[in-house]
Design a protein around this nucleic acid. Sequence first.
DNA 1: TGCCACACGTTATAGCATAACGCAATTGAT
DNA 2: ATCAATTGCGTTATGCTATAACGTGTGGCA
Lengths: 134, 134
Amino acid sequence: MATQQLTKNQSLVLDALTHAEGPLSAYTILDKLRDHGFRAPLQVYRALDKLLEFGLIHRLESMNSFVACTHPDHHHHHDHGVTAFAICEDCGQVTEMHDAGMEERLSVLAGKQHFKTEKTTIEIRGHCQNCTAE
Amino acid sequence: MATQQLTKNQSLVLDALTHAEGPLSAYTILDKLRDHGFRAPLQVYRALDKLLEFGLIHRLESMNSFVACTHPDHHHHHDHGVTAFAICEDCGQVTEMHDAGMEERLSVLAGKQHFKTEKTTIEIRGHCQNCTAE
DNA sequence: TGCCACACGTTATAGCATAACGCAATTGAT
DNA sequence: ATCAATTGCGTTATGCTATAACGTGTGGCA
């Protein structure tokens, strides 16, 4: 299960996300990579699409932006169940969480509707410990 | 706990969503309401903001669109816990679901991070029973 | 060699959302 | 009654997010 070989553009985008403090929008990434030759949004979006496909990054639907995957066990590569994100509205920090119980509840919920799940989005907006401490 | 009195624009937007087959984007609503005097996106967005505030509609983050709330007990007005949406990628139908167990799991997850939850988004993309039957 | 798949670069356009201004109607306190 | 504050409204302009469509170059491989 070797790590997917990335192209130059994909590596640049992944690096930008990995080294960022918080989630980045596609256009923010574009700006960060102008010095590396990026000129157009599509260069970013195409890389993002691939990285999403490889499971190396996540898209945060509620804020139209992207984060590098922080999940510890990469030997599961991109098939490690449902991911939930805690997004702090004060500092922008994003915490990636996994929970088997959650997955079970979702499965039950979907099952009741005879719904075939393809992809699940869970995003919790609020305030992280640091920012709550005031 | 009387129903919030709506303005004309708010009523029109709510009606459009209530009578729609599935979720609508703000611009789709705008087009539907041109005959009623709507001319600009802001007229729609302002009404949507209020309807969201009143808990009469929901925003689907994963598709930048909106649906009327279908939750049965309106005497809880807009405080009826976590809502999950099952979104069919074939027919566009959206099912609103509520589950106490789910809320519990989320609460536990957030608690582990000492995270103060403000709003939770749960959206399940997939295929509904009808569209799975093929 | 010719074909195919894929990444890339570029221009243009589509789709989603808000800023900023001014006006009109409502409310509510003085 | 009147003034001030609030709220909704309409309009223009702008900004942010995402994709369509076209062509180029490269590497694998029958």
